[in-house]
Amino acid sequence: MKSFYLFLALFFFFSVSVKAQKVFSVNYQNQADVKVYVAKYENQADLKVFKLKYTNQVGQNDGKWFFTDYQNQANKTLFFVDYENQADLKIFFVSYENQAGWRNNSKRHLMY
């Protein structure tokens, strides 16, 4: 029975410590935690994002996102806006994992 409680405690600890890199795109702005604009150029972005293929690759708040199939699997919900001035966060999708990261650290709190 002790091992069950230990497992439960560890599971809770690790599930809480995930840094919101599992994301889900919602259809309505009022459902979103963060409003996101996809910039046309890298130098316009607050965050350079790399799309992960597998959920087990998710790490810290470092710009490596895994898009979940269901909203309840995500740590953050996103709504993609059409105009830059509507966004909380501006991102740019990169082609390689090592290019991902924050360009504007003052917005980092949005993805915790």
Rank of each mutant, 00 (worst) to 15 (best):
52 L>K: 05
56 N>T: 02
30 N>G: 00
80 F>V: 15
16 V>M: 11
25 S>N: 12
50 F>N: 07
69 D>K: 14
109 H>R: 13
47 L>P: 00
71 Q>D: 04
24 F>Q: 01
68 T>R: 08
56 N>S: 04
54 Y>K: 09
35 K>S: 03
53 K>H: 10
109 H>E: 10
110 L>N: 01
38 V>L: 15
2 K>T: 04
40 K>A: 15
102 W>H: 03
69 D>N: 13
91 I>E: 01
50 F>S: 09
24 F>P: 00
82 D>E: 15
71 Q>A: 06
7 F>D: 11
15 S>F: 12
92 F>G: 08
103 R>K: 08
18 V>Y: 12
9 A>H: 05
90 K>N: 08
74 A>P: 00
19 K>Y: 10
6 L>G: 06
66 F>L: 14
73 Q>D: 11
57 Q>M: 14
26 V>L: 00
53 K>R: 11
101 G>A: 05
9 A>S: 09
14 F>C: 07
45 A>N: 06
15 S>E: 13
6 L>M: 08
79 F>D: 01
51 K>H: 15
36 V>Q: 00
12 F>T: 10
14 F>G: 00
16 V>T: 09
46 D>V: 11
89 L>N: 03
55 T>A: 12
29 Q>L: 07
19 K>F: 13
35 K>Y: 05
96 Y>N: 08
20 A>I: 09
86 Q>Y: 04
108 R>S: 07
79 F>E: 00
48 K>S: 13
75 N>R: 14
73 Q>W: 05
84 E>C: 13
79 F>G: 00
22 K>M: 14
30 N>E: 09
64 K>Y: 12
34 V>A: 03
2 K>G: 08
6 L>Q: 10
71 Q>C: 03
63 G>M: 02
58 V>F: 01
94 V>K: 03
87 A>E: 04
22 K>Q: 12
11 F>S: 11
96 Y>M: 05
61 N>I: 08
85 N>K: 13
79 F>P: 01
19 K>W: 07
80 F>Q: 15
74 A>F: 02
9 A>T: 09
16 V>L: 12
106 S>M: 06
58 V>A: 06
47 L>K: 01
22 K>D: 04
25 S>K: 14
51 K>Q: 15
94 V>W: 01
36 V>K: 01
30 N>D: 08
89 L>T: 04
29 Q>W: 04
3 S>H: 14
92 F>R: 08
84 E>S: 15
69 D>R: 12
76 K>Q: 08
77 T>C: 04
8 L>N: 05
53 K>P: 06
88 D>K: 06
82 D>Y: 14
51 K>I: 15
56 N>R: 07
19 K>R: 13
17 S>N: 13
100 A>G: 06
77 T>R: 06
97 E>G: 05
2 K>F: 06
97 E>C: 07
46 D>Y: 09
31 Q>N: 05
45 A>E: 01
37 Y>E: 06
77 T>F: 02
19 K>M: 14
13 F>R: 05
6 L>S: 08
7 F>R: 11
28 Y>M: 02
111 M>R: 00
49 V>Q: 00
112 Y>E: 12
75 N>H: 14
31 Q>E: 06
83 Y>G: 15
36 V>T: 04
22 K>G: 10
108 R>T: 05
105 N>R: 02
69 D>H: 11
12 F>D: 06
84 E>K: 15
36 V>G: 01
10 L>G: 06
